[in-house]
Design a protein around this nucleic acid. Structure first.
Lengths: 335, 335
DNA sequence: TTGTATGCGTTATCAC
DNA sequence: GTGATAACGCATACAA
C-alpha cells in the first residue's frame, strides 16, 4: 500500500494525500480528515525509505561504542535513546569491542546507511583518526563522547577526568592519607591520561610525594588485575595507605587482596574506584567511587547532535564544542 | 557523488557502474577494475537508502527490549549485534522501559523504517498483543526472545525456565534443604509463571511440602524487595531453610536480611538467585544462581531471523519454531 | 485548494 | 559486454 493506492481509492492526487498526511495547511480540513480516516482504517504505514531518499534525511543516527554489555556504556546508550525518541530519531547501534578495524568498518557502514549523525566513543586501540575525519568530510555530524580523540575537529562530551581524579586524592588527603598509589588505565586513551594527570597534580598541590613506583598500569580493567597490581604495589612500598584505581572492578580486585591479607579497609589502606558501576554498591565494604553519569552524557551527546544538525539545515556554520558533565565523589565504606 | 557522476567521469553507463560495483559476471574485468579503482580513489560511498527503495530490503533489523542498562539484555543485544554484523545487517534499537505504549509506538516506527525483521522481548505489562500481530500481518519477520507471548504466532527463543527452576529446587534438596521458599516475579510474564511452576513441580517430585505462604511476589525485582520479602517469609514460617529468588538482585536482598540477623548462609538458610548477573559473583557470599546465556540467546534469535528471511525470499512458507537455550546451575557459596 | 511533473540514487529488465 | 530505461514511494515547486 502506497500513497498512490490511497489517492486512487479516494479519487484525489498523490500530492494531496502526501500533504494531508503531513498536516499541511494548504489542504482543506475535509480532505484531510477523509485521508486520515482512511489511512487509520486500513492501517497504512508510510515508507520512510522513500521519504529519506527524497529529503536526503534519514532521521537516524549511528552510535558506536566499545562495549555494550557494560554498565556505563549501556547507560549512555540508554540516555541517547531516550533523547532520540523524544525528537523522533531512530538509533543504529554498533559495537567495536575496542577494535580499531571494527570501528573503521562500522563507520563506513553508517555512512553507507546515510545516518544524519554519528555519536562515538572511540576504541581503546584507535590512534589513527582518518576514519573520523572522513565522517566530518562527508558532512555527517560527528559527536564524540567519553573516549575521545583530541585530534578530531568534532564536539566532545566528556567528564572532567583530571578534576575528578584530583578530587579523589583530595578526599584521601582529607582522610589523613599520605602515600597514595594509583592503578592506572592503559597508556593511550585520553581518559586514562587525564586521570593520571589529575592524580599527579593533586599530589603536588597537597604536597604529597609522587613516585613512579606507586603507579601500576592495569590495562584490561578487570578485577584480577587489581589483585595482582596491589600485591606488586605493597611489595614495592609497604607504606602505601591508599589506592586510587582507575575503574571500579580494578578497585574491587585491590579490596580482594587487602581482605585476603587481613589489611584493614580503610584504616590501613583506603580504596577508591571510578565510575560508580552497579557492583560498587553491592560490594563489601561498599566502594567509594566517582559517579560517571552515563544517562546524562548520552542525553547531552544527542542534544549536541540535534543542535548541530539544526544549524546545518539552516546553513549556519557549526563550531565544535566541548561539554563537561559534572561528576561527584560518592563516599562509601572503603575510604 | 552518485553512480551517475562516476558513469559520466568514466564514460560508461550507470548500469555498468552498478554492476561493476556488485561484481556481476557480465561485465569485463577491465571495466570492473577501472570502476573499482576510481571508487576507491574518490572514496565513493553508495547510497543504501536508494538501494533499499529499489530492492525493498533494508538489511536492517529492529530490536525491542525492556531495559538496556541491564546485564542480561545488553548481553542479548551484544549477541544479536555480533551475528548481525557477520551477516551484513545493521540494528535499530528501541527500549520500552517495560511500557506497553512505548512498545506499540516503537514497533510502529520500526515498520515505518521498513526493517526486514523485528526481534523483541516484550514489556512486562504487555497483555494485548495486537501490535505484534500487526507485525506478522505486515509480512515483517518477528522473533520473540526471553519475555515472550504464547499468543503470538512467531518464533520464540527462550530458556527452559521450568526446568531451570526445577533444577534449583533439586539442588537445594540435595543440600538437605526441606522447606524451600520462593521469591517470585510479577504475575503476568511467562518467565515468572514458568519459574514458579518449575518450583512447584520440583517440590512435588521430591516430596517437599508446598505452601502458598512461602511464596512472595517481588515484582520490582530490586534488592530492597528481597530484604523485606525475606523478613515477611521468616516471620510467617521460621522453619524455612532455603530461598529461591527469581532474580539475582532479589537474592542479594535476601542475603542482606540474613546477614543483618546473623542467620548463617547457607547452613541455616541457603539462597539461590537467577540469571548470573555480574553482581552475583561480586557479592559475599558469592551467589549460587542459574546462568542465563544472553549472548547465545541473542545469536540464536538473529540466526532464527536469518533462516526465516531466507525462506521468505525463496517464497517458502515459514513455520514458527520454539528454541530453548540451555542453562546450568552455578554452585557458589550461598548454597 | 488541488493536481502535474520531476527527481532522489539505485537495481534490474531488456535491448543492442 | 554494455547501455537505455523504467521502476521503487515519496516530497515539493509550480501550474491550474
Amino acid at each position: 500500500m502506497t500513497l498512490k493506492d490511497i489517492a486512487k481509492k479516494l479519487n484525489i492526487s498523490v500530492a494531496t494525500v502526501s500533504k494531508a498526511l503531513k498536516d499541511y495547511d494548504d489542504v482543506s480540513l475535509a480532505t484531510k480528515t477523509r485521508v486520515q480516516d482512511y489511512v487509520e482504517k486500513v492501517k497504512f504505514t508510510p515508507n520512510s525509505v522513500a521519504a529519506s531518499l527524497r529529503t536526503q534525511k534519514t532521521k537516524t543516527i549511528g552510535v558506536v561504542i566499545p562495549e555494550l554489555n557494560h554498565y556505563f556504556f549501556s547507560a549512555v546508550l540508554s540516555g541517547i535513546l531516550a533523547e532520540a525518541e523524544k525528537h523522533d530519531y531512530t538509533v543504529l547501534i554498533q559495537q567495536t569491542h575496542e577494535s580499531y578495524n571494527a570501528e573503521k568498518r562500522q563507520i563506513k557502514k553508517l555512512l553507507f546507511k546515510r545516518v544524519d549523525g554519528i555519536l562515538i566513543s572511540i576504541a581503546g586501540k584507535t590512534n589513527d583518526t582518518q576514519h573520523l575525519k572522513d565522517v566530518v568530510d562527508s558532512e555527517t555530524i560527528l559527536i564524540q563522547f567519553d573516549k575521545i580523540s583530541k585530534l578530531v575537529a568534532a564536539s566532545k562530551i566528556i567528564i572532567d577526568d583530571r578534576k575528578a581524579a584530583f578530587n579523589i586524592v583530595q578526599h584521601l588527603h582529607q582522610q589523613g592519607k599520605k602515600t597514595i598509589a594509583h592503578l592506572r588505565g592503559p597508556l593511550l586513551p585520553q581518559v586514562a591520561i587525564d586521570r593520571f594527570i589529575g592524580y599527579k597534580q593533586a599530589l603536588e598541590h597537597f604536597q604529597l610525594s609522587y613516585d613512579a613506583k606507586r603507579v601500576v598500569v592495569c590495562d584490561k580493567g578487570i578485577r584480577r588485575e587489581g589483585y595482582t597490581a596491589t600485591a606488586k604495589l605493597l611489595q614495592k612500598d609497604p607504606t602505601i595507605d591508599a589506592i586510587f584505581a582507575h575503574t571500579d572492578s580494578v578497585a574491587l580486585g585491590a579490596i580482594d587482596y587487602l581482605l585476603a591479607h587481613d589489611i584493614k579497609i580503610p584504616e590501613q589502606v583506603a580504596v577508591v574506584g571510578f565510575s560508580n558501576w552497579e557492583i560498587s554498591k553491592h560490594s563489601r565494604p561498599q566502594l567509594t567511587t566517582v559517579n560517571q553519569p552515563g544517562i546524562k552524557m548520552g542525553r547531552a551527546a544527542f542534544q549536541q547532535f540535534l543542535k548541530e544538525v539544526d544549524k546545518k539545515y539552516k546553513r549556519q556554520t557549526v563550531e565544535p564544542e566541548t561539554k563537561f558533565i559534572p561528576t561527584r565523589l560518592i563516599h562509601r565504606e572503603s575510604s
